[in-house]
Nucleic acid binder design. Structure first.
Lengths: 161, 161
DNA sequence: TATTGTTATACTCTATAACTATA
DNA sequence: TATAGTTATAGAGTATAACAATA
């Protein structure tokens, strides 16, 4: 569709197929969901060569930024249930991207750390994620991108007390 | 945590547990995902009394705004695979919220429409969703909310040609 | 031949209960 | 008693192939 047609459709609340969005277009939650699906789609394609999914990339970044932390701490920070993080760590160890070390102070917990291979993959990931971010924000200028980040941060985290 | 502590944590890239977010805090995709999880959480709690999940509410809104459209059309507009929309329509019919009518022009397709009960439930939904939206945007003023909607719309839909 | 709705199926994500070893 | 990691499992959500009816 042309830019003019898109503008007309947006104004009338219709999409490409001629369907009316009804009130959906005015809902933050709906727009958020649609935007997120689009972003994940691009992320998945971008990171397929590295064999990393969004949650795995987040986990590697977090382990790298917080070496020695436990599985519970990393999982909690990512909003992943502890049982579901076990399989992810298993795969990281299988691929030699991260290691579980027995904690010296509490033998129940595992001190996590990236391997050299993990650090190397993460360096590649940082390059790829930069291109990915540029692509998804292609229709935003730098001011708009910063403002979007700020507003999302206001929406996302728990309220300060 | 106090507002001052939160501000300090945000500046240093740390969360409530003292973990560094690393580069995650600077990624649109990450902020988008976290914000969306929070929004869905509130939506789920808000709509539990109506027995509606986000995808179901979206479907009811879309059917109401586009009566007579086919399952393929509604599903495509929502980004749902056609096979997966069958079970949703089955439940709508079981709960007498929507009906499948044989199309007069193409006997393969179903013309969808809400029942009176469906319209009534949707009216309740509109009230609830308004309160929900107000809650999730509580820390945004009206200008900020409008700007967030605009920026998300730029992110979400396919590029105009 | 192509399309609509459907069935069957599989794969991923997510959530919970319960076990073990440590504390 | 409580906690960290783990196992097992169950429920959503999502994706594809193939079939019957119809175009």
């Amino acid at each position: 569709m042309t830019v003019a047609a898109a503008a007309r459709a947006a104004k009338s609340g219709e999409d490409a197929g001629g369907l009316s969005e009804g009130m959906l277009g005015g809902l933050l939650g709906y727009r958020l969901r649609r935007a997120q699906l689009k972003v994940f789609e691009d992320f998945l394609a971008s990171f397929a060569p590295l064999g990393l999914k969004p949650a795995q990339f987040s986990a590697l970044v977090l382990i790298a930024a917080n070496p020695g932390r436990s599985q519970r701490e990393i999982a909690a920070a990512l909003g992943i249930q502890r049982p579901n993080f076990v399989a992810m760590m298993d795969e990281f160890e299988r691929r030699a991207l991260a290691r579980r070390h027995r904690s010296q102070t509490d033998r129940r917990s595992h001190a996590l750390a990236l391997t050299e291979a993990g650090e190397a993959l993460l360096r590649q990931g940082r390059t790829i994620v930069a291109a990915h971010e540029a692509r998804i924000a292609a229709r935003l200028n730098e001011t708009e991108r910063a403002e979007l980040m700020r507003l999302l941060a206001l929406l996302g985290p728990a309220a300060a007390d």
